[in-house]
Design a protein around this nucleic acid. Structure first.
Length: 831
DNA sequence: GTAGCCTTGAAC
DNA sequence: GTTCAAGGCTAC
């Protein structure tokens, strides 16, 4: 079904209800709204797509009998007078072509706009004149003054000015651009590509002003399709005579529009105008709306050059808005950017501005009652999504507002909790998860160049825009776990856990400042860390540092200093032993150490700190194994440790320099091949006491040699103990330990690597860093030590094979069936 | 592919 | 044991 506004009756309407004082005060907000919608008209759509509305349909849509009677009465009066009012003629199909040709002629556009005539429809509108004269440049005072003027007064004022400008321009140069410079790109030429459901801004106006025009809107139900042509005025006098009538047609009660007036029930197969209507509604009202159906739009839309707030860029691959297939689009939709903008401006010309602009107007109409608001002021609203990105606090605020029981900021459904960094409903949570997990976000596209408005009823229609909105409201891709680990709490930026801890931290700082700090009780399950901050806190702080210095991400090898300053020569057993102040480093003989170098060292130690959190068995939560009174308990603890290590390892190596830069596939291959060597090195480096004894995860110093009966296990334990002693004898530093891990992981000899040469070059760089480190600290004597350290890698490899064989032969999962070690099993899959 | 419900597991 | 935010399952 298609509804439209009956223009023919307007003259009569005007005569029936002469201009009142309310007409003089059509607010700016209304004009902006019309300005927006008037840019979306297509003459042909109006000409060809109109279907009369029957009385039955009227009743379907809640029009009562009184209204129908009024409508019938109006129809009779219109029929009697329509022949005497041939001001508008509905154009035929060729009118569209004619209009398009007009669009391409600047002179025509100028002329039309000077006359207040819409270049597409040929109808004079005050909006066009205001647009031409760039309403957004007006001051608040000027806008207020405009509000007090009648529209025909406004037109008269600007037409006079415009004609003078035109005459001057013509006088100076016939060939130069005749439009004032500040008007570049201000003429909206948005075309709807035969959009059958678009009934134009005037009909929106009719919906908006039911009080005055409902009868007109539903008045023509005589069963015949209107065929009048709609032509531009031929003379200036004609324009002037038509303008008051046209203005009157726009409704005299616009200043009393309520939010409810913005919507009127329409057929299920509705269009973008419906979408725009809906998004103008308050969230509560939009819930009751019918499903939005298919729609397509062609937009040749230019943004006013001074609309600096509208800077959304077109997504990659859609710079020219080549239409992609889209499940919600049934008609062909070629969305093309305006062709008259310069290349620089083209960056900012985005059809998505339609939504932004619409949101902007929505803010004016729905949220602001101040008619004198300016573009600049509301530009903040216009870019609120962008601001939300920059300002996590604002998102947090939104999140609080949308907490359980609230509305999903993406689709307005019921919020089910805090998901991936924002409060959202269950379906948007699932949608976001699926999109990331299936990597679908890399191939999503929107035929409307990302301008869809997502609501509950249409959220399934455009995945691209839904996903974009998810990101806009603060969902984090990194919150979707790459390892698909279930349960637990995540610590990505913006996670609820992080927010909670930051809040706690702030609270503690406040308490500290007040001298009211309360010592926290040591945690039972991590006795060794009783004097440390909780493991998670350390992790959190470390991640925070990394976020604060993203440029120091070690994945950027060029940031790696050639002479990194060594840390303390002593071997710290916990992360708290690591000084994060580079100035406290001992043996720092580096000649030059820039700020970036200092930051690098800081970052390096933070990485180590995180590693301690990840892998330090003393910090492992819930690792409660029996004391090593039996071989079985030893194995159980070891398997648990390995399984935990396998689980944490993937996310850990993503943070490592060089490995960060590798492709996911290569990283996975390297991880699977070398994880056990890294674990052995970790255990040998961190889990031994001063006498070289291995220490169990529960911190017990038992003699493992005494409890194991298996020869194979005994050999493993013995060799690990020897390795730990050797590392200690060499006085291996934390930095050296760190580089050894990198060398283990960057093993280019592993099969199935896609970029072995790249990995080899990375490994060589790490070797250089290791040598530079030693030379800087100990001079030439360091080469001997580093040589010995490198020899330990072969011992690590042998140990790794030994343990892997043991794991495979004993069939970990089978023999210890009551407990699953799925991560460990995955790692052993291809062995 | 969607969305509602269920399971999991770290933190408390 | 409870909470809550992850992932999984499954009917549609």
């Amino acid at each position: 079904m298609y509804r439209h506004h009956e223009h023919q009756s307007l003259g009569q309407e005007q005569s029936a209800s002469p201009t009142t004082s309310t007409e003089r005060c059509i607010p700016i907000k209304r004009r902006l709204l019309n300005k927006f919608y008037s840019s979306k008209r297509t003459a042909s759509a109006q000409a060809n797509g109109r279907i009369p509305v029957s009385d039955a349909e009227l009743s379907c849509h809640g029009v009562d009998h009184v209204e129908q009677a009024e409508a019938l009465d109006l129809r009779k009066r219109k029929k009697a007078t329509s022949s005497s009012l041939p001001r508008f003629k509905w154009e035929s199909a060729d009118r569209q072509e004619q209009a398009s040709q007009q669009l391409q002629s600047p002179d025509t556009i100028l002329e039309q706009c000077l006359r207040g005539v819409d270049p597409v429809t040929g109808r004079p509108t005050v909006q066009n004149v205001l647009r031409y004269h760039d309403l957004s440049k007006l001051s608040i005072g000027e806008r207020t003054e405009l509000d007090k003027m009648r529209d025909d007064e406004i037109l008269a004022k600007y037409l006079k000015t415009a004609c003078e400008q035109r005459d001057r321009a013509l006088y100076h140069s016939e060939s130069s651009a005749r439009r004032p410079s500040n008007s570049k790109g201000t003429i909206s030429t948005m075309l709807f590509d035969q959009e059958p459901n678009w009934d134009g801004p005037d009909n929106l106006g009719s919906r908006l002003s039911r009080k005055s025009s409902r009868a007109d809107t539903f008045g023509r139900s005589n069963g015949s399709t209107p065929t009048r042509r709609h032509q531009p005025y031929e003379s200036q006098s004609e324009v002037y005579s038509a303008i008051p009538q046209d203005l009157a047609r726009m409704g005299s009660d616009l200043s009393t529009i309520s939010v409810n007036d913005l919507w009127e029930p329409v057929n299920a197969s509705q269009d973008l105008i419906s979408v725009h209507h809906i998004s103008s509604l308050a969230a509560d009202e939009s819930d009751n709306l019918p499903q939005i159906g298919n729609g397509s739009i062609r937009t040749d839309y230019e943004i006013p050059s001074n609309s600096r707030n509208v800077t959304l860029k077109q997504p990659k691959g859609e710079q020219h808005f080549v239409a992609h297939s889209c499940q919600r689009t049934t008609s062909h939709s070629n969305v093309s950017s305006g062709g008259t903008a310069s290349s620089g401006e083209a960056e900012h010309l985005h059809v998505g501005v339609v939504e932004r602009l619409h949101n902007h107007i929505e803010n004016i109409v729905v949220k602001s009652e101040a008619d004198t608001c300016s573009f600049a002021e509301n530009g903040q609203n216009l870019t609120r999504a962008t601001n939300a990105k920059r300002d996590p606090e604002s998102k947090a605020t939104v999140g609080v507002k949308n907490a359980a029981g609230g509305k999903c900021p993406i689709c307005s459904d019921v919020v089910s909790g805090y998901h991936y960094g924002t409060h959202s409903c269950e379906s948007c949570k699932g949608f976001f998860k699926r999109t990331i997990q299936n990597k679908r976000n890399e191939r999503l596209a929107c035929a409307l160049a990302g301008s869809c408005v997502i609501i509950l009823q249409n959220r399934k229609h455009c995945a691209y825009c839904r996903f974009k909105k998810c990101l806009d409201v603060g969902m984090k891709q990194e919150a979707v776990r790459g390892d698909r680990q279930r349960g637990g709490r995540s610590m990505y930026e913006g996670s609820s856990e992080q927010r909670r801890r930051l809040q706690l931290q702030t609270q503690q700082q406040q308490n500290e400042a007040l001298g009211q700090i309360k010592k926290r009780k040591p945690r039972k399950r991590a006795p060794s860390t009783a004097t440390q901050p909780p493991a998670g806190d350390r992790d959190d702080q470390s991640l925070e540092i990394m976020r604060m210095h993203p440029q120091q991400t070690l994945g950027h090898q060029e940031r790696m200093p050639s002479n990194p300053v060594t840390s303390s020569a002593s071997i710290p057993t916990t992360s708290t032993d690591i000084s994060i102040n580079p100035s406290t480093s001992t043996g720092s003989t580096t000649t030059t150490c820039s700020d970036s170098c200092d930051e690098y060292i800081l970052y390096l130690r933070k990485l180590e700190s995180i590693e301690a959190t990840f892998f330090n068995p003393f910090g492992l939560p819930r690792i409660s194994i029996d004391r090593c009174h039996s071989e079985k308990s030893l194995l159980t603890g070891s398997y648990y440790l390995m399984d935990h290590f396998c689980k944490k390892m993937p996310s850990w190596i993503e943070m490592l320099p060089y490995l960060h830069d590798l492709e996911v596939g290569d990283r996975s291959v390297l991880l699977k091949a070398n994880w056990l060597q890294v674990l052995i090195l970790t255990v040998c480096f961190r889990c031994h006491d001063n006498e070289g004894h291995l220490i169990l995860p529960d911190r017990s110093h038992c003699d493992m040699m005494a409890v194991v009966n298996s020869v194979a296990i005994l050999d493993i334990v013995r060799r690990m103990k020897q390795l730990a002693q050797k590392l200690q004898a060499l006085k291996t530093t934390q930095d050296e330990y760190f580089y050894l891990k990198l060398l283990i992981l960057l093993n280019s000899d592993v099969k199935n690597l896609s970029q072995p040469s790249r990995i080899r070059s990375y490994q060589e760089k790490v070797q250089e860093h290791l040598f530079d480190l030693g030379m800087a600290r100990e001079g030439i004597s360091a080469s001997m030590k580093i040589g010995r350290l490198l020899l330990k890698l072969s011992e690590l490899e042998r140990l790794s094979h030994l343990i892997k064989e043991h794991l495979v032969f004993t069939q970990v999962a089978g023999q210890l069936g009551h407990r699953k070690y799925s991560n460990l099993e995955d790692m052993l899959e291809d062995y």
